[in-house]
Simulated assay, not measured.
Amino acid sequence: MNVPRDRCDQDQDKGLPPSDFVETGIRIMKSRTLGALLIGGLVAATAVLASPVAASLGRTSEADSIRFSWSRTTGVNDYLDETWWAVRGHDTPDNFVERLLSIPVGAVARGAGAGFQARVSQGTGLPLPESWSIATAKNSPFITSVYAETPRDLAAVLGFYRTELGKRGWIETVLEPDRAVITFTTPRGPILLRLSRQDDRTIAELSLRRPGIANAGLLPRPGQAKLMLGNTSDAAAVITVADQIIKLPAHAGENLADSDSAAAEIPDSQKIDLPPGRYKVTLKVDGGAAESREFEIAANETRGLLASKDGALVPMRLY
Rank of each mutant, 00 (worst) to 15 (best):
S207T: 12
T124M: 07
S31P: 04
N2G: 01
W85H: 14
T232V: 02
G217C: 06
L126Y: 09
S308Y: 06
P129Y: 05
G288S: 14
M1P: 14
W85F: 15
G111C: 09
K247W: 01
L195T: 05
A135L: 08
T232G: 01
A216S: 14
G311E: 04
R188F: 13
P211F: 03
T302L: 12
P151H: 03
V241A: 05
D310T: 15
M1S: 14
A214Q: 07
V53D: 10
N215M: 09
Q12W: 07
N95P: 00
D6N: 05
A112I: 01
S140F: 10
D94S: 10
A263N: 12
N77H: 12
G75S: 08
Y147M: 08
Q12L: 15
F68G: 02
R119S: 14
G41S: 06
D11T: 14
D78A: 12
D200V: 09
A235E: 09
V314T: 10
P276W: 11
S269D: 07
S61Y: 02
T33A: 11
P129C: 12
V43A: 09
A298F: 12
G189T: 08
I182L: 12
Y161N: 02
K226G: 04
D13V: 11
I26T: 06
S51V: 02
L16G: 00
G35P: 03
F184I: 01
